[in-house]
Amino acid sequence: MSAVEGPLRGYHHETYVCPLPGGTGKGEPARWKCREPRPGLLWFDRRCFASEEQLLRALDGRIDGIPDLIQVGPTDLQRFIEGKTLGALHASGSEVPPHLTGQIVSLFGQLARVRSGSLTVDRTCTSADRSSEGDTDGFLERLILFTQKRVYQRNMPEFEGLFRALRLYDISFEHLRKHASGLTDRPFRLLHADLHRENFVVDGEERLWTIDWELAMFGDPLYDLATHLYLMRYPADQEGLMAEQWSEAVESAAPGGSAGWETDLPKLLAYKRAQSVFTDVIRTALSLRQERTVDEGLLAQAGDRLQKVLGAGAEPLGMSEVPTVERVTAALGEWYEKRAEPVA
């Protein structure tokens, strides 16, 4: 049997895991991850650092519970964290135990101590593409612009008919800008920007590890909380508690970092709901094209899921009427019939 495991499931990379003796530096065997970007991958979020491994090296000793690194020839390998994902232990929508949420809150506090410019890490975004320190409106505008240009407009040639059928237009972004404007200025800090249940691993000692830092950036700390709450799907009571604990942790680490959070959090959550409309339309359509056969039942399931996403994002996108499940399902079917290609 091969000692190499993989490829492991993941959106951005194909990952293989292999054991290396003594890789921990303590003479203990460990397993390490070798990853390659998936070919033809669509990116739905901004990337600000040139190398996740370079970032992890810079964060060593500043952020707890991140993967160790070793270099094998020219390749950096991340240590494979042995354990179960938070999602495997506590499914989306369910409550997360306090001993684990406490570690998430501590992570937010540590992130808030990492100032922009304090890390020697290669950046992919130019200085002209970065918001001025504390300009939270400018930061959000760049996120909206990325969604508009890189997700919506860039994919227009393939998805224009589907976008139109679902009542998604360029003007939708103007509605979003008006809905989310007027944020309070906050000092920029390091953001993970993808803190969901599958990016937390719980080891045998109930220690929480944070993986997949490729979407990390410097920006508004409240955006990290909004992304986290949107992706985690906490029960309502726990969501409110997490927001309050986040505020205390971030304010202690970066005074002013939580300013205006109670007013601004709904605006950032609205952006996340609107962003998901565009990404989920594309992902849902492409997932259908990967199926060998698509029957009415599969189309109906996809249409039902997507219609709920449209409903959640309707207000910030200025949709006066949300397409019905039947219309969404029909639009997906029409797109599939025109674009589907046989799977080899």
Rank of each mutant, 00 (worst) to 15 (best):
E206D: 14
H228Q: 07
D220R: 04
H175I: 10
G161N: 03
D135L: 00
T75P: 15
D45V: 14
W335K: 02
A254N: 12
V322P: 06
T227P: 12
A3K: 12
P98D: 15
L56C: 00
W261F: 12
E321D: 10
D304V: 08
K26L: 14
G311P: 08
L332R: 00
G333E: 00
W213D: 04
S51G: 03
K33F: 12
P98C: 10
D212S: 00
L299E: 07
A236P: 14
S131F: 14
D224M: 02
D224P: 07
P74F: 08
E14K: 10
L306H: 05
R79I: 10
P187L: 02
E239K: 10
C125G: 12
A302P: 05
P37A: 03
W261H: 09
F49K: 00
E244V: 10
H179R: 08
F80R: 04
L20F: 14
T124N: 13
W213H: 07
E95T: 11
L166S: 04
G93S: 05
L77D: 07
W32M: 05
Y336K: 02
G22N: 03
S116Y: 13
L107P: 11
L231F: 14
T279K: 15
K272A: 15
A274S: 07
R46E: 11
L195R: 02
A331H: 02
L269Q: 03
S247Y: 01
E141T: 06
M217F: 12
L229A: 05
L288R: 02
A112E: 03
V322C: 05
A165L: 10
L215V: 13
E251S: 08
R283M: 11
L183C: 03
L145Y: 12
Q71P: 13
S276M: 07
Y223Q: 10
A128F: 14
W246Y: 06
D264V: 06
F80I: 00
T136Q: 11
G313V: 07
D194F: 06
L119W: 08
A112C: 04
P39S: 01
K149C: 14
D68Y: 13
L288D: 01
A180W: 08
E248C: 15
W43V: 13
V105H: 11
K272C: 13
L286Q: 08
E82S: 05
C34A: 14
R186M: 04
G333V: 01
G311K: 01
L8I: 02
M242Y: 11
V121I: 10
F200I: 01
L288K: 02
R31F: 14
R35C: 06
E251P: 08
G256Y: 04
R38G: 09
P19R: 01
L332G: 03
A285L: 09
F146T: 01
F188T: 00
